[in-house]
Amino acid sequence: MAHRRKSIGIQRIAAYATIAAALVVTLFPVYWIAANSFKYDIDIFSIPPQWIPANPTSKHYHAAFVERPFLIYALNSLIIAVSTTLVSVVFGSLAGYALARFQYPGRWRYQISFWILSTRMMPPIVTIIPLYIAFNHLGMLNTKPAVIIAYTAFNLPFATWMMKSYFQDLPVELEEAAMVDGDTRWGAFLHVALPLARPGLAATAIFCLIISWNEFLLALILTLTERSQTLPIGIAGRVTQYNTYWGEISAAGFTACIPIMIFAFVVQKHLVRGISFGAVKG
């Protein structure tokens, strides 16, 4: 085991060299999309590539967000992500608390927990066809509520498990003390458990935001017009067989990455718990 041994100079150097290489490999693509979003078309196409934009321009941002409806896509993404997150976190906290604290007859608690987790494992492509047909019947295709409902189905299991695990970490005596002090169980949940689970709530919410913000397949199928299309769909729409609008999609793509990069630093402490419940991938 390397990390149990006494520090050796060479190993240290190798480690730092690896970290440096990993950082370059990790950051270069992100840098590259950012750099290209600020280049004139002619500089994007230059051979050899222009490593640093010589004539920075915001032209593509203007093109995407003013001339083309990327601002609407971004707003749609935001509305859908926030609504999905609200519903998922509220329902997920309630169910997570119930599964963390209450007794159910027989092995029902285990069964229900496992069933909720297993719905998360369904490949989206499997449920999307019936959802498409149902929303078509209800006249809800191309609406934001349809996307929000579909996203909730995929976020709720995760939110429930994540909140369940945070509630289980809280000592149960605190809620019992509140009940003896004069609260109902529900009051103890609202006044004691929920405030104490705030870090967990925040982390769960941010993961839900990220999943919904990034999602592609469901939105691709459920939305056909800009009234409800999200940023990823808008970007994909500018990658056609005949022409790819590099500047525009770089600008939109990099914009889509910005909130994620901010959130990543907020949830870093909760990352392991989040991804082991399968949070990060939509």
Partner: peptide
Amino acid sequence: LPKYRDVAMVFQSYALYPH
């Protein structure tokens, strides 16, 4: 319900509200 029993309890772990 516990709230109507008018009892007070001291817990082993004290159960102080940390917030």
